[in-house]
Structure formats: structure tokens, C-alpha cells
Design a protein around this nucleic acid. Structure first.
Lengths: 177, 177
DNA sequence: CCTTGTTGTAATTGACTGATAACTAACTCT
DNA sequence: AGAGTTAGTTATCAGTCAATTACAACAAGG
């Protein structure tokens, strides 16, 4: 784990992992490139050089999060191609709280055209993917996504997923499944 | 509409309305108190003096948004005390897109303890209120909130509510109701 | 009319932060 | 070996922004 020299692509991956953590905690405007650099173990200017601008890094981070969700769904469908199986996969993703919170920050930042375009594209893609993988109807897929969004905001609030704060109403909701 | 002298409380209300707009568009860190002041038609230092700090203003804004949602639910329940009636009320709230996006920003900013505490308290309160007003079971209320969250993120993405971008997958979801 | 409290502003500041520039260190391929 | 490319750093700037201070306008009561 000593300080190694990596290719730009490899280092970029590491920076992206750090960016998921950092953006997940504080959102686009609230995160400093310096913090991402610290987490990735490189200098702040290098982060900028790898991705051009902070916004491009944020967009790349959103893409990575969506990729990971789609991968998880595809792998789940290989085992069992129904909504319950994908649902289980999503719950496992919740173990990395920040991953899903990055998604939320993306939705909330959709007023920025570049962000909005990407987020709409990817969210629509996930909806389509869910239907294709499981053969679900529009209504079934809608309910699936709705549940996913509820779990995501609950994870963001810290009342679902690991290390979650104990909260009567949250337990009641989670027990109702 | 000339420049009037208002009491601090009255002016505070106007600033809060402006804050809903501004925070809804850019979130806590992305919004400048200067922009809120401009929207409210007062000077930036006065905004700070009215609320102490930017964070306290953000918290007050979250409270106001939750108040408006609860008011809308209560009024809807007076007419007809079932989930369909509250759902209709929520859809009407979506006309003010920023209102709901402020909520989303609150969820996403829950890592900040002061924000997280407030958001958990209010979201739990809304869940309880929904059950009390309609007599819904935990499962019914959960599905109701899940649908609400999906609509909220779709509004944030600009694919639901007024002036929404036309998007095949979004139409498919909205038509499935 | 004048004094006291309140509403409001202009000017400023000091800390922060994304981005650039200039440079150094390491790998690669003859 | 050494020329050229790629990975990475230090130093720094230029702009931004929340917050403070000091002051001005206005109202109301005595």
C-alpha cells in the first residue's frame, strides 16, 4: 500500500472512489476538490488535471454510481430474473451509503443542465433495464423504483442500512416489508 | 409594491419564500445568501441578521417546507380522509417544484447533524400524520411515501410537474398510475 | 421635536477554494 | 545511456462569499 506510481487511468479510478465518498457526504458545491484529493492520496491540482473541472469529476462520479447500480441489477438477474432479486441487490448496495446519496445529490442538482441531462438519461436507462431484465409491467417497475427511492432517502437520513440511527417510525416502515 | 418598511417578522417571511426558491435551485452549499437577499429585495447582511447564520436560515427553510406539506395534507383530509385525497394534495404541491426539491436537499444534507436531526424529526412526523389522518396501515403508508419520493425525484429531474421535459420513460411511469 | 428603538444599508474583511503555472521525478524505448 | 513522455508536486493566484461593523433612515411616544 506504499506510494506507487499508477497510470492516469488507474489513478483516475481511485480518485473516483474517493469522489463517491466525498460527494456523497457533502454534494457538489459542498465538497472541496482538496478533500477528494486527500482521500485519494494525491495532490489537489492533480485531481483537477485528471478530470478537467470539478463539474466533470462530479459527472463522472454520477456515471460511476449508475454503472454500479446497473451492474448489480444485471448480476442479480443472472441468478434470478425477477424484481425481488433486483430488490435484494439494491439493498446490498445500501451498505455503501454514500453511493446512493450521490444519486440523490444528482437529482437535487438537476437544475444544472449538464447534470440534469446525465441524470435523466441514466435514470431512464435504469427504469428500462429493470423492465427488460425482469419482464415487469410499467406499473410493477414504477412501484419498484418508488420503493427504491424511499429506501434511498431513508439511507440518506441515516435511518436505513448499516450503522443506522434507531428511530421508531423508521423501524415501523422497514418492518412493513 | 414600492419599497415598504416591514416588521422583522414580516420581512423574515418574505426572505423564507425567497430561500425556498434559491435553496431549491442550488442546495445549501450552492446557494449564496446574496442571491436570497436579491430575490427578497433586501441587502445580504440583513438576511444574515434576520436568521443568524446561513445554516439557521436553511433549517428554517426546511421547517417551512415541511409545514406547508403538513398543512396541505391536513386540508386534504378535511375534505376526504383517505390516501388518494392526500396524494392529490401532494401532486398539487408539485406545482412549486422548488418546494419539494428543498426537501431532497435536506435528505442529501443529513450528514450535517443539525440538518439530519431536523429532517428525521419532520419526515417521521409526516409519516405519522399520514397514518393518523387516513387510518392507513404501515404498509399502505409506506407505499404512499414511496410513491411520493418517486414523484419528488422526478420533479427534481424536471420530468414531472409543470414545464416538465418530455421524456418517453417518464411518461410511461406517470401513465402507469 | 427629540429621543429611543427598530428597520435597513454600505463598506469591508478574512477565510476559503478551484484552477493555473512552473517544476520535478519516474518510467519507456531505442 | 539518454531522449522523450507520463505521473505527480509545490506555490500561488484570482475570485467568491458569509459574516461583522458602523452608520443611516424611519417610526412612535412623551
Amino acid at each position: 500500500m506504499a506510494k506507487t506510481r499508477l497510470t492516469a487511468a488507474e489513478r483516475g479510478e481511485e480518485v473516483l472512489d474517493a469522489a463517491v465518498q466525498a460527494f456523497g457526504e457533502a454534494g457538489f458545491a459542498g465538497t472541496k476538490t482538496d478533500e477528494i484529493a486527500r482521500l485519494a492520496g494525491v495532490s489537489q491540482p492533480y485531481v483537477i488535471r485528471l478530470f478537467g473541472t470539478k463539474q466533470q469529476l462530479f459527472l463522472a462520479t454520477e456515471q460511476r454510481v449508475c454503472d454500479r447500480i446497473e451492474d448489480a441489477f444485471r448480476r442479480a438477474a443472472e441468478k434470478k430474473a425477477d424484481l425481488a432479486s433486483l430488490g435484494e441487490a439494491y439493498r446490498e448496495l445500501m451498505a455503501e451509503r454514500e453511493l446512493l446519496v450521490v444519486l440523490l445529490h444528482g437529482f437535487a442538482a438537476s437544475r444544472e443542465p449538464a447534470v440534469g441531462d446525465a441524470v435523466r438519461e441514466r435514470f431512464g436507462g435504469i427504469y428500462k433495464l429493470v423492465r427488460e431484465l425482469t419482464g415487469a409491467s410499467a406499473e410493477e417497475a414504477r412501484e419498484f423504483l418508488a420503493t427504491g427511492m424511499l429506501l434511498t432517502v431513508m439511507a440518506a437520513m441515516g435511518v436505513a442500512g448499516p450503522d443506522s440511527i434507531d428511530c421508531p417510525w423508521a423501524s415501523e416502515i422497514l418492518d412493513s416489508f
